[in-house]
Write a protein that binds this DNA or RNA. Structure first.
Length: 481
RNA sequence: GGCGGCGUAGCCAAGCGGUAAGGCGAGGGUCUGCAAAACCCUUAUUCCCCGGUUCGAAUCCGGGCGUCGCCUCCA
């Protein structure tokens, strides 16, 4: 039984799909007006893991994630660069998808865009107006929040408090400061679509109500997004959809914690090393992906290069074990002991962790314990080692199906660990001479060469029979002052 | 000011009523000419503070303090 934390009820609930054996998911996507950054990757990676786990548990999953390809920020950006809104959106949508592919994210089954859903949006708004849930004023259309008695139920606000706190500047045209725009009049130089209320564009919230129901039906199982979207976005979405359908649309509201960036002086201006394509140049794609899964999805992550680096280091142990066992096959040896049951039980424990509100942090802990136990048994050698190795391979493969920490993903980022940087001739020649010196016992000279190479950016590892040169690189992007 | 999180070893982080997962780091060890790499072992009598409930609390309740998010565009 899978349990999921529902923001609406503030408790974990058993997952009870509307249609037996199927799970429908809608996740709020991005507005492609700037580079994709680490914060955008979290919901994508988290939902990717959730989806893979649901599939592993036998559900047929239908997953929709939108692009908000028309909005004020996009219009502003287009004005700055002198491009069309479509061109700006297309560029950043492509970048986003490139980054997601590198992170091993299975694309959603549908990625609807607002601009492809205009007539449905206009119809939806028209219905709300016709039924008095909304009103038009000078080409704008507003939702009448006062019509919804339980407005505020998701975010735990009540209308009186909202009014008292009223930071919402009363807009001239609104009947009530809490009313929000379903449709916004477009000025002559802005993109717009013809509608019964004149030329305009959709408000921010309406798209999700329309597209979720269009692709998943008037009721669906899970609605995701960042915790920052709870108010006003999801609150308003609930108001619209429930006004339209007369019943709740969403079974379970699932919100991921944010990636906060205070330590890297994050602002919307970016350019500080947290852009995904930039990060992917300096860290393993698998490390970046799983760093976001190393913490429970509802816990906020205070991003730091150090924490990411530490995680990558630890992940290397899992990857090293995989390298060691991936060629092993089943054994005919009949061996066993307590360790056999431990290794055998891995997948059960791993999946149980994920059943519990998708606890990827605990799932990873199981992986590390699997590897440690396997190391212990393998150190003893013999048939037990072969059997333990094979079981570990099976376990890691199963875990990797969901968490995705092994296969380096194709993409702009060469995988840090697997990349074979070309060793220059002068280095290999020096290494060869040094090897002879070592065999002759001239260690003092050999040590000096090692030191000199280190300063030149090459680390030397002396093995039993040969020495290797490893490129030393900065482990993270240099930060601008 | 209102609403919602969070505060667990040097750092990151699970656990959310039954007696502290996991990772990094650190210390010790195996291997090695040494070093590195790799691997093994060790590393919180205790969970921000003060009260309370309970046979029993990191976990529940009340009150503080700190911190983050939202209330305006944000994943």
């Amino acid at each position: 039984m899978i349990s999921v934390y529902n923001t609406l009820t503030r408790s974990k609930e058993p997952l009870r799909p509307i249609v037996e054996g199927q799970v429908s998911i809608y996740v709020c996507g991005v507005t492609p007006y700037d580079h994709a950054h680490i914060g955008h990757a979290r919901p994508a990676v988290v939902w990717d893991a959730i989806k893979r786990h649901l599939r592993r548990r036998g559900y047929v999953v239908r997953h929709v994630q939108n692009f908000t390809d028309i909005d004020d920020k996009l219009i502003r950006r287009a004005a700055e660069t002198g491009e069309s809104v479509e061109a700006v959106a297309a560029r950043y949508m492509a970048e986003y998808q490139e980054a997601m592919a590198a992170l091993g994210v299975i694309p959603p089954d549908f990625m609807p865009r607002v601009t492809d859903n205009l007539s449905a949006i206009i119809d939806f708004v028209g219905q709300l107006v016709a039924r008095d849930f909304a009103y038009a004023r000078d080409g704008d259309v507003y939702f009448r929040v006062g019509r919804m008695a339980d407005y505020g139920k998701l975010s735990g606000r009540d209308r009186e408090e909202l009014r008292a706190g009223a930071r919402v500047e009363p807009q001239e045209n609104k009947e009530d400061p809490q009313d929000f725009a379903l449709w916004k009049r477009a000025s002559a130089d802005e993109p717009g679509w013809e509608s019964p209320w004149g030329r305009g564009r959709p408000g921010w919230h309406i798209e999700c109500s329309v597209m979720s129901s269009r692709y998943l039906g008037p009721r669906f199982d899970l609605h995701g997004g960042g915790i920052d979207l709870v108010f006003p976005h999801h609150e308003n979405e609930i108001a619209q959809s429930e006004a339209y359908y007369g019943h709740p649309s969403v079974n379970v509201w699932v919100h991921n914690g944010l990636v906060t960036l205070s330590s890297v002086k994050m602002s919307k201006s970016l350019g500080n090393g947290v852009e995904l394509l930039d990060l992917l140049r300096h860290y393993q794609a698998t490390a970046l992906r799983t760093y976001l899964l190393s913490v429970h999805y509802r816990t906020p992550i205070e991003f730091s290069f150090e924490a990411l680096q530490d995680w990558q280091t630890g992940l290397g142990r899992l990857q090293a074990m995989w390298q060691e066992v991936q060629a092993l096959g089943p054994s005919s040896a009949l061996v066993g002991g307590e360790w056999l049951e431990d290794l055998w039980g891995f997948e059960r424990r791993f999946l149980a962790a994920l059943d519990d509100d998708f606890n990827t942090a605990r799932a990873f802990a199981e992986c590390f314990e699997l590897v440690r136990e396997a190391r212990r048994v393998r150190a003893q050698g013999g048939q037990a080692a072969a059997v333990a190795g094979y079981l570990t391979k099976v376990g890691l493969a199963a875990a990797n199906e969901i968490l995705g920490f092994l296969a380096p993903q194709p993409g702009p980022a060469a995988d840090f660990g697997s990349e074979r940087q070309e060793v220059p001739t002068w280095v290999s020649m020096l290494l060869a001479v040094r090897q002879q010196a070592r065999q002759a016992g001239q260690y003092e000279w050999a040590d000096r060469v090692r030191e000199a190479l280190r300063e030149a950016g090459w680390g030397i590892e002396d093995g039993r029979t040969e020495s290797r040169a490893i490129p030393l690189r900065p482990s993270r992007p240099t930060q601008e002052a």
